[in-house]
C-alpha cells in the first residue's frame, strides 16, 4: 500500500470540497471493504482518501409516505435486520442475506456497496487492461469463466454488487451531492455500461458522493424474490443472480421488474422477460418462456456458457417463488 493523505470529513460540504480539490486523485472511504483491498493490491493509488464515516446523520432507515430512505452510511447488516425491509422488501432482504459474510455486512455501507469496483482478475492484477486505460480486455481470449454473458462491449466485467441488483428491481433512486448541488437519479440511470464509459461503472463524478438511497413503497400485491448462485455457501460473489419484483392481481402479473446480477457490466434489467410475463398468469410455460427470453441475446465468451443455463434456472426459481 502506498502513502496517501487522509481527510476525515465532518460535513458533506467538507467532503465535496476535499474531493474537488484533489482533481480525481481522491477516493471516498466509507466501510472500506472494497477500497482497502484495491489499495493493498496496488491497483488503485489515490493521493487522498476522503473519509466520510465521520459524517453525521447519514446512518438511518426512514419511512415516509413515499417510501423508505436509507442513509448512505447505513451498514448492510442494519438494513438486513430492519423490520420494514424484512416485511415489505423481501427481495432486498434476501439479497443482503447472501451478500459477502456477516463481518463484511457489519462494515460495508449502502453507498459503498453499489459503488464496488468489479472483481475481474485482470482489472485487479498487474494487467494493463482497458478499464485501467490500457488497450485490451484480456478476458476476451483469456480466462473468462466469471465474466459477462450480456452487455459486454470491449470490456467484459460483471457488476459485483448483490444489493445493486436488488435495488434496480425495486426501482430505487440515488441521491447525490456534489459541487454543483444535489440531484436524485433513478438507479437504472446511475449504472453505465462500457459502451458509455469504459473506465467507470456509474455516473458518479470525482466531486460527488451518494448520500441516500430511496426505495418507493411496493404497491399492494407486490412480491419479490432474489436467487443467487455461488461456488461456496458464504462470502462469495455471484456466479449469477436473478431478482424478480412482481405485482400480482388475481394470479395475473400486472407489473414486473426483472434484473440479473453477475452476468453483465451493470445490473441487467431484462425487459424481454418482463414483456413475456406482463399481463399473464405465471404458468410453468410462461416462466420458461420468460427465462428463455431473458437469455436469448446472451453472448457467452469461451469459458462461461455455463452461466447462461445457470441464469435461466435462477430466474425460473425467482419467478416460481413470486407465483406461489
Amino acid at each position: 500500500m502506498r502513502a496517501f493523505e487522509f481527510h476525515p470529513a465532518h460535513q458533506i460540504s467538507d467532503a465535496i470540497r476535499s474531493l474537488d480539490e484533489a482533481n480525481g486523485n481522491a477516493r471516498i472511504c466509507a466501510g472500506g471493504t472494497d477500497l482497502l483491498s484495491r489499495l493493498k493490491d496496488d491497483v488503485d493509488n489515490p493521493e487522498r482518501l476522503v473519509c466520510i464515516r465521520t459524517l453525521p446523520d447519514l446512518r438511518y432507515i426512514r419511512n415516509d409516505k413515499d417510501g423508505v430512505r436509507i442513509g448512505a452510511l447505513t451498514t448492510l447488516s442494519t438494513i438486513e435486520e430492519d423490520a420494514y425491509v424484512q416485511k415489505q422488501l423481501p427481495l432486498l432482504h434476501q439479497a443482503l442475506q447472501v451478500t459477502a459474510a456477516p463481518q463484511i455486512r457489519n462494515q460495508a455501507t449502502m453507498g459503498g456497496s453499489i459503488c464496488q469496483r468489479p472483481r475481474c482478475w485482470y482489472l485487479r492484477g498487474p494487467f494493463d487492461c482497458l478499464r485501467k486505460g490500457g488497450k485490451e480486455c484480456f478476458a476476451v481470449y483469456g480466462e473468462n469463466k466469471y465474466h459477462a454473458i450480456l452487455g459486454g462491449h470491449l470490456c467484459y466485467i460483471v457488476h459485483p454488487s448483490d444489493s445493486a441488483t436488488a435495488l434496480v428491481a425495486l426501482n430505487a433512486s440515488v441521491k447525490i451531492h456534489g459541487s454543483k448541488g444535489e440531484k436524485t437519479v433513478p438507479i437504472e440511470k446511475f449504472f453505465v455500461g462500457p459502451e458509455v464509459n469504459i473506465l467507470k461503472e456509474n455516473i458518479l463524478e470525482d466531486d460527488e458522493i451518494i448520500t441516500e438511497v430511496f426505495i418507493p413503497h411496493p404497491a399492494p400485491g407486490c412480491r419479490g424474490a432474489f436467487n443467487k448462485s455461488r461456488e461456496r455457501q458464504s462470502y462469495d460473489f455471484a456466479l449469477a443472480s436473478a431478482a424478480v419484483q412482481c405485482r400480482m392481481s388475481r394470479g395475473v402479473c400486472e407489473d414486473v421488474r426483472v434484473v440479473l446480477g453477475g452476468v453483465a457490466p451493470i445490473p441487467w434489467r431484462s425487459r424481454e422477460a418482463e414483456a413475456v410475463v406482463r399481463g399473464k398468469k405465471l404458468s410453468a410455460a410462461t416462466i420458461r418462456e420468460a427465462s428463455e427470453a431473458a437469455l436469448r441475446n446472451a453472448k457467452p465468451l469461451t469459458q462461461n456458457d455455463y452461466k447462461v443455463d445457470l441464469t435461466k434456472l435462477l430466474l425460473t426459481k425467482s419467478f416460481q417463488q413470486v407465483s406461489i
Binding site: F127, E136, F138, V140, Y141, G142, E143
Partner: peptide, 21 residues
C-alpha cells in the same frame, strides 16, 4: 487459474496489446 497465452491471440487479432505475463 493461470493466465494463458490468451493475449497472443488477441494481439494477433487486434494488432496491439500491452505487456502481459
Amino acid at each position: 487459474v493461470l493466465a494463458t497465452d490468451g493475449s497472443k491471440a488477441a494481439t494477433r487479432k487486434t494488432g496491439k496489446g500491452g505487456p502481459f505475463p
